[in-house]
Simulated assay, not measured.
Amino acid sequence: MGKEELLEKLWNDRYYLDENVLLVNMTRLKKKMKEIGIVHLLENIRGKGWKL
């Protein structure tokens, strides 16, 4: 899923959010997943977005 599509689905375009907000939240999510032993569920596709 691309960055723009993910921003739209998560925040429904109700607020203006820049790409950094998404990146910070995805980094936090990946860190939490790693802490509980989920390592390869979420994959970053450089320049495109993320893949489950």
Rank of each mutant, 00 (worst) to 15 (best):
L10I: 14
E8T: 09
E4W: 00
L10V: 13
K34N: 11
I45Q: 04
K48F: 15
G37M: 04
I36G: 01
R14S: 12
G37N: 05
I45N: 01
M26G: 03
K3W: 03
L22I: 10
K34D: 10
N25K: 12
K3I: 09
I36C: 07
I45M: 04
G49Y: 01
N44F: 05
M26V: 14
Y15H: 09
E8L: 08
R28S: 14
L7S: 10
W50D: 01
E19C: 03
L52R: 10
K32Y: 08
V21P: 00
V39A: 05
D13Q: 10
E5A: 09
L42F: 14
T27D: 13
I45H: 03
E8Q: 09
G47L: 07
W11K: 08
L23P: 01
N44L: 03
K9Y: 02
N20W: 03
E35N: 09
L22W: 05
E35P: 00
G37E: 07
R46N: 06
R46G: 05
R28W: 06
I45V: 09
N12D: 14
L22F: 13
K48M: 12
L41N: 14
V24Y: 02
N25P: 00
V39I: 13
I38W: 05
R28C: 05
G49F: 02
L17A: 09
Y15A: 11
K51P: 00
L6Q: 02
H40I: 08
L22S: 06
L42I: 15
E4M: 01
M33S: 10
N44V: 10
L17E: 06
N44Y: 04
K3D: 08
L52N: 11
L23M: 14
M26T: 03
G49E: 01
R28A: 12
E5C: 00
K48I: 15
N12E: 14
L29K: 07
R28P: 02
V21G: 00
R46W: 00
M33Q: 11
Y16R: 15
K31V: 11
T27H: 11
V21M: 04
K34V: 04
R46P: 03
R46D: 03
I45L: 10
K48R: 13
E8H: 06
L7P: 04
N12V: 01
L7N: 07
Y15Q: 13
K31T: 15
R14I: 11
L17F: 09
L29I: 15
G47N: 12
K32Q: 11
V21K: 06
L29Q: 05
L17G: 01
I45P: 02
D18V: 02
V39L: 10
K51C: 09
K32W: 08
V39K: 12
I45C: 05
W50V: 07
V39P: 00
K31P: 02
E5R: 03
R28G: 12
N12W: 08
W11D: 05
E19G: 08
N44R: 08
I45F: 01
H40L: 13
K34F: 08
E19L: 11
M26I: 13
